[in-house]
Every structure is written in structure tokens, then in C-alpha cells.
Computed example of a mutant assay.
Amino acid sequence: MAAIARIAEPLPLDVAGIVHEIMRPRLGAIDAGEYPADILRALGAAGAYGHHADGTAAGLLAAIDAMTEAGQACLSTAFCMWCQDALVWYLAQGDEAGPRRHLAAIASGAALGGTGLSNPMKAFSGIEPLALQGERAGEGYRVRGRLPWVSNLGPGQRFAGILSLPDGRRVMGLFEAGAEAVSIAGNARFIALEGTGTYTVMIRDALLSDADVITHDAAAFVPRIRNGFVLLQTGMGLGLARGVAALMRADARGRANAAFLPLGPDAIEARADALRARVAAAAQAHAETDRANFLETLRLRLDVSWLALEAAQAAMLQFGARGYLEGSEPFRRLREAQFVAIVTPSVKHITTELARAT
């Protein structure tokens, strides 16, 4: 009897395969507000969020490159990846062992979660007060406050937050969306990145147990993680710029008539390459806690923002009226690029910090 041929199981997709085969067909739905939870889990299973858990420069760069790959197609997904990556970063670098019980699930994408550090990063720069307040209560802290926008969330998904105590100390902990006294509500609609699971979080006397405290001294902890926090964001802007360059090249008709515009796809790619080299160099110094090093990280992040904005604008100029249509790809990329420039630390925030240093 002839042997029965065995049907080979399909190989798991890598990040590029997930982007091409699963994400790209759903770009319109994600842009319209679909939260791509299954795609985010698949990216985690492909290893996208686990690279930097070891705290090395190589791991940090690999995480940025994975985000760049996704960002070439969809900034909403790349932003959610950054939220996930940031949470991995906090847990892996944290002072306390308790929250690390969640690290494996979050790094693998089995569990999804976000970062609630937009407000604290502004607070540490004196832009706004800390939104969460707490006080010691038994073996933990009683916490209250409101975070207006926390992304990559849904019921049961975790996020980090920093609270201030009456004596001025700051504590960083892990909260669960939808848990007792931690409610979420979607009460805004954005011009882009609507599919990012972004909610307002209301914390009403929730108990943060010591088992969920990442650090009891956030003032000392944040300088250790802030370079990595910001460097990870560069994957969003670099991905968008490279995606825009590819979009412009694929538009043979528009490209022929846009030869004399000031910024074309070759120049965009060259700038992206140069910035990627700077990111690699900066990753080597991510553990440095001095302010001068952090300002250099901010300058790099600012330059990535400018490239994303200029690249998306260049695509609109090349496509002309075709790009000005509702639902067009250049219009989506332009809206996404504006988010690169306003996500914390925003261009406004960064330029303020740099001006203080002069």
C-alpha cells in the first residue's frame, strides 16, 4: 500500500508575515476603530515583545525594529505594540518581584496591556500634576484619580500607573482595567488611532497591593527606564516614514510628476537609515540616568517626529487630489504622523525640555 502523504503544518508567521497576510487586509477596519487584539497576540507569539526583557541594547533595538515593521503598514498597531513593549520594560526593570509574575504572559502576547505613564512623564517635567493620589493602607495603597487616555486596554488588561503619597513620595504599580474600583470608559473619538483600545480610566479608592507594586520609589526608578521608554517610540515614526516611502515609490503615475518636490522616497529612506543608526547608538547608553543623556534621547525622538511629519506631507503632495480623498492611504498616513508628534513626550513637550537646557 502506498504511503499516505503527510500534509505539512504551516510554519508560524514571523512579524513581517503577520503584517503582510493578516494586518494589511484589515487596515481600513483598524483605522475605523477595530482594536486588533488577535493581531497583537500573534505579534507577541512571534516574539515581538520579548526581545528587550533582558535589558540589553540589542534587545531594545530588536523590539524597535519589530515595531518599525508593523508601523510601515499601520501606526495604530505599532502604537499598541509600543504600549505592550513599555509595560514589558517596566516589569522587567522593576524593583519588586511581585509584578514580574505577569511578565511572561505580557512578553509573549498571551496577555495585553498598556502604559499609564503619559501623565507622570508630564508631571516629572512640571507640565501637570500627578493624576493619581494614594495613601498607605495595610499591605498596599489606597488609590484614587483619573487618567484621561490609557491605550491598549480592555477589561482584564493591565496597565502601569504612578501615584503620589501625602509625604511626596511616588509609587508605581500595576492595575487591572475593569477590576473593582478601576473602571474604563471610551468617551472621545480621535481623527486617527481610533482602534488602539484607548480609554479614560477612573480609579475610585482601589487597593493596590504590595504584590502589584513595581517600585516604591518611582522618583528613582523613572530615570532608569525613561531612555528605553522614549527610544522604543522611535519604531513608530521610523515605520511610518518607511511605509510612506514605499507608498510613494509604488505610485508610478504620481512619482513621475513629483520629481521636483523637495522630499522624495530615496531621501526619506536615507534619513530613516541615519536615524536608525542613531537609535542603535543611543540604545547602548539607555541605562545612563543623567539628564544630558536623556536630552540626547529626546533630540533623537524629536528628529524622528519631524521625519514622520515631513514624509507624510510629501506623500500628500505627490498624490495631490487623489490623496485628499476620504479613505485614501496618504490621508491615513498623514493623520497617523500627527499622532507621532503629539504622543507623550510630544514635540511641544520635547522642545520645552530642550529650551530649558540652553
Rank of each mutant, 00 (worst) to 15 (best):
M1H: 14
A3M: 13
A3K: 07
I7S: 10
H20P: 00
P25T: 02
G33R: 08
Y35D: 08
Y35G: 00
Y35K: 11
D38P: 01
A42F: 05
A46H: 07
G59D: 09
L60G: 10
L61V: 14
I64G: 09
A66Q: 06
T68G: 10
A70Y: 01
G71L: 00
G71C: 01
C74V: 02
C80H: 01
Q84R: 08
W89K: 10
L91G: 06
Q93G: 11
D95N: 02
D95L: 00
G98R: 02
P99V: 10
A105D: 15
G114W: 06
A123S: 15
A123C: 11
G126P: 08
Q133M: 08
G134M: 02
E135L: 07
E135C: 05
E139K: 15
E139T: 10
R142M: 09
R142T: 06
R142S: 07
V143E: 04
N152T: 05
R158P: 05
I162W: 05
L165M: 15
A192N: 02
F221A: 06
I225C: 06
V230S: 10
G235M: 03
V244A: 00
R249H: 04
R249G: 01
A250V: 01
A252N: 05
A259G: 14
L261C: 03
I268Y: 04
V279N: 09
A281P: 09
A282N: 07
A285N: 12
R291K: 09
S305A: 14
W306V: 14
A311C: 03
A312Q: 03
M316A: 07
L317D: 14
A321S: 12
R322Y: 13
E326I: 13
G327N: 10
E336L: 02
A337S: 12
I342C: 10
P345H: 06
T358Y: 08
